[in-house]
Computed example of a mutant assay.
Amino acid sequence: MVNSKHKIVVGFSGGVDSLVTCLLLKKSGYEVYAVTLIFNNSYISPVFQEHVKKAAELLNINHEFFDVRSSFNKVLDYFKRGYLSGKTPNPCVFCNQYVKWPKLFEYEERVGASKVATGHYAQKKALNGNLFFTKGIDSEKDQSFFLWSLKPEQVEQIELPLGKMYKAEVKEIAQKNGFTTFSRQKESTGPCFTGKNYRHTLKAMLKETEMPGKGNFLSEEGEVLGRHDGYLFYTISQRKGMGLSFKEKKFVKKLIPESNHVVLAHAGRLWSREFYLKNWTIHYPPALENCEVEIKIRYRSQKAKGVLRKDEDRLRVELSAPEWAVTPGQTAAVYIDEYLVGGGYIDEVKN
C-alpha cells in the first residue's frame, strides 16, 4: 500500500482502460489526478467531454482537460510531410514521443505528482540496474511497441497497472465496480484524427499546389500498367483499391514522389533483409555491440531476429531472415529478449 499522499497523474480518455487504471491506483492508495489531453477539435465536442466528466465523477477523482492542440500541430505536419515524401508515417508513435508523454510529464510537474500512469498494456522490468518496458501479458493487446522512445529514467516514473492483466479481466473489473456501460464501449483504432481512411484527412490538409495529380503505375521494368490518383494515396504492400486487374497479384513496392510514379511488383519482390533507421534511440548500449536483437517492424507483427550496426547517423538493421513489406516512414521497435531497448524510424529499405 502506498502513502495516500502520493499523487499520480493518469492519462484519461474515459475509456475502460484508463477508467480501470484510475480505479486500481485509487484502491492502492494513490491520489489520482486524471488528465484528458485535447489533441484536436474532436476532443472538445460536448458529447465527448460530458462522457469523460461523468466517468471522472463516478470514480470520484480529480480531473482536468489539458489543451495541447498547438503542440499536436507538429503531429499533423509530420503526417502530411511523411506522405508527401513518399513514406508511410506512424503518427501514433510520433505523438507518443513528441506530444503525449512530454505533456503528461509537464502536467505531473504542474500538480506536484511523483508518477504518471496510462492504460497501456505493457510491463516494466529491471535489466542491469535500469528499468525497461517489456510486453504485456495479453499478447493480443501488448502496446510496448509504442513506447520505445522513453528513457529508463522516464520509465521509472511510469506505472502501467494493466500490463499484468488480460483485456477480459479489465472489462470484468469495470463491470464489478458499476461501470458496465463503459466496459461495452467500442474501442478506438488507428490515429485519433484520421478515421478509417487516412486519404480523406490527407486530402483536406493539402494545399492545391501540393496535390500531385494523376500519375502512372509502373512495373519494375518501367512499363506503364495504368493510371492512379497520386502517389501519396498509396502505401507499400497495398493490393486493393487500384482499379487494376492482373493475372498475378501485384502489390505496391515503391513510391516515387519526384515523378509521381507508383511501382507495382509481385509479392516475392517485397521481401527485405536489410533496412536503415533514422532518428533512432538505443537505451541499452550492448544492443549495438554485435549482439542478436529482435526487431518489430509493425504493431501487429512478430519480432524478427537480427543485428544492429551504426552507419554514420543512421542505424543499419540486418535481419537473420527476410521480412515482408518493410515500409519507409513506419517505425521499428528493438528488443533484447523481453526488454524493449529502443527503436527508430524506417528510412531506407534494401529489397
Rank of each mutant, 00 (worst) to 15 (best):
Met1Asp: 15
Ser4Asn: 08
Lys5Arg: 11
Ile8Arg: 00
Gly11Val: 04
Phe12Met: 07
Gly14Asp: 00
Asp17Tyr: 11
Leu23Ile: 09
Leu23Thr: 06
Leu25Trp: 02
Lys27Asn: 14
Tyr30Asn: 08
Ala34Lys: 04
Asn40Lys: 01
Glu50Ser: 15
Val52Glu: 00
Glu57Val: 05
Glu57Ser: 10
Asn60Thr: 06
Phe66Met: 04
Phe66Gln: 03
Ser70Met: 01
Ser71Phe: 01
Lys74Thr: 14
Lys80Trp: 08
Gly82Met: 02
Leu84Asp: 00
Gly86Pro: 12
Lys87Val: 15
Asn96Gly: 05
Asn96Ile: 04
Val99Gln: 06
Trp101Leu: 03
Leu104Val: 09
Phe105Asn: 13
Glu106Trp: 08
Arg110Thr: 04
Tyr121Leu: 10
Tyr121Gly: 05
Lys124Val: 14
Lys124Ile: 12
Gly129Cys: 12
Gly129Trp: 13
Leu131Thr: 07
Phe133Tyr: 10
Asp138Ile: 13
Asp142Trp: 02
Phe146Tyr: 07
Ser149Val: 03
Ser149Ala: 07
Glu156Val: 09
Gln157Leu: 14
Leu160Asp: 01
Leu162Asn: 08
Lys164Ser: 15
Tyr166Gln: 07
Tyr166Gly: 03
Ala168Phe: 06
Glu169Arg: 08
Val170Thr: 15
Lys176Asn: 15
Phe179Ala: 02
Thr180Trp: 10
Thr181Gln: 09
Pro191Ser: 11
Phe193Ile: 11
Gly195Tyr: 15
Gly195Arg: 06
Met205Asp: 09
Leu206Phe: 06
Glu210Ala: 02
Glu210Trp: 12
Glu210Phe: 11
Leu218Val: 06
Glu221Ser: 11
Gly222Cys: 05
Leu225Lys: 09
Leu225Cys: 13
Tyr234Gly: 01
Thr235Ser: 05
Ile236Gln: 03
Ile236Glu: 06
Ser237Ala: 14
Gln238Ser: 02
Lys240Cys: 00
Gly241Gln: 05
Gly241Asn: 07
Phe246Thr: 05
Lys250Ile: 10
Val252Phe: 03
Lys253Gln: 14
Lys253Glu: 10
Ile256Cys: 07
Pro257Gly: 01
His261Asn: 15
Val263Gly: 02
Val263Arg: 01
Ala265Thr: 14
Ala265Glu: 11
His266Trp: 01
Arg269Tyr: 03
Leu270Thr: 08
Trp271Phe: 15
Ser272Pro: 09
Leu277His: 03
Lys278His: 08
Lys278Phe: 01
His283Phe: 03
Pro286Tyr: 00
Glu292His: 06
Glu292Lys: 13
Val293Pro: 09
Val293Cys: 08
Glu294Gln: 04
Tyr299Lys: 13
Arg309Asp: 03
Asp313Pro: 02
Asp313Lys: 14
Leu315Ala: 14
Ala321Trp: 15
Thr331Tyr: 13
Ala332Gly: 04
Tyr335His: 12
Gly343His: 01
Lys350Leu: 15
